[in-house]
Amino acid sequence: MQNDNPNTERYIAIARACLKAINDTTKNAGDREQKIQAVYQAIDTAFQAEFTEYRQSVAIMATVLERIASGQLDADQAADLARKTLDQQPENTRNAMMH
């Protein structure tokens, strides 16, 4: 992954959580299935944490789109609302490719 990719930090955080879970399972007693589940849980937890901002942005944008789609705004108001919403979007969610 390229260092200039805005998702590099997210990728690294998820990878570290996975590696930590794998390392922890080698130290702990337990059956194979429990260890596998621990790794899956670590992956899920890390993924959910890293993509919280995306989910919040999508929820806000959906609300704005619903308001625009309601037809209660004229074209200028709708465009202004869209611009304001985009301006409030977290920087790391702008124009970033998701994997």
Rank of each mutant, 00 (worst) to 15 (best):
E33W: 00
A46L: 13
I43Y: 15
D24Y: 04
E66S: 11
T8Y: 14
Y40A: 05
I68D: 14
Q41F: 01
D80S: 12
M61Y: 13
L73E: 12
D4A: 12
L65K: 15
T52P: 09
N7T: 05
S70M: 05
D74I: 00
R32W: 08
T45C: 03
F47C: 05
Y11A: 02
Y11F: 10
Q34W: 03
R83P: 10
I12P: 04
D87A: 08
Q72V: 01
E33V: 02
N7F: 04
G30K: 06
T25M: 07
F47N: 11
V64C: 10
T63Y: 11
S70K: 03
Q77H: 02
Y11W: 14
T52E: 15
Y11I: 04
Q48Y: 10
R67A: 07
L19Y: 13
D31W: 03
A59R: 08
I22Y: 14
D24I: 00
S57H: 01
E66I: 01
R83S: 09
I36W: 06
Y11Q: 11
R16P: 01
C18L: 09
G71F: 00
R32Q: 12
N7A: 07
D87M: 07
Q77T: 03
R10V: 01
S57Y: 08
A75P: 12
R32N: 12
A21Y: 12
T52S: 11
Q56T: 06
Q48A: 09
D87K: 02
R83K: 10
P6R: 02
G71W: 01
T63R: 14
A62F: 05
K20W: 12
A17T: 04
L86T: 05
G30W: 03
Q56A: 09
V58F: 14
L86F: 06
N7I: 06
Q56M: 10
A75G: 11
N23G: 09
A46N: 05
N28T: 00
G30V: 02
V58C: 13
T45D: 10
D80H: 04
T85K: 01
Y54Q: 14
N28K: 07
D74L: 01
T52F: 00
I36Q: 14
A78F: 00
Q41A: 05
L81T: 01
L86N: 05
F51L: 07
A46G: 12
A82M: 08
K20S: 13
Y54P: 11
Y11H: 09
A49H: 14
K27V: 04
R10W: 03
G30S: 06
K35N: 11
Q34T: 08
I36E: 15
I43H: 13
A38Y: 03
Q48W: 04
I43G: 01
G71M: 02
Q34D: 15
Q37C: 01
K84Q: 11
A38N: 12
E33A: 04
R16A: 04
N5L: 06
D24F: 02
A38G: 12
N5M: 13
F51R: 01
A21N: 11
T26K: 14
T85E: 10
T63V: 05
Y54V: 07
A13M: 09
F51Y: 15
A13Q: 10
A42T: 02
L86I: 00
D76R: 05
Q77G: 13
S70V: 00
E33R: 11
A21T: 08
I43F: 15
M61R: 14
A29R: 09
A75T: 08
L86W: 00
P6C: 01
K84H: 09
A75M: 10
S57W: 13
L73P: 13
A62C: 07
R55Q: 13
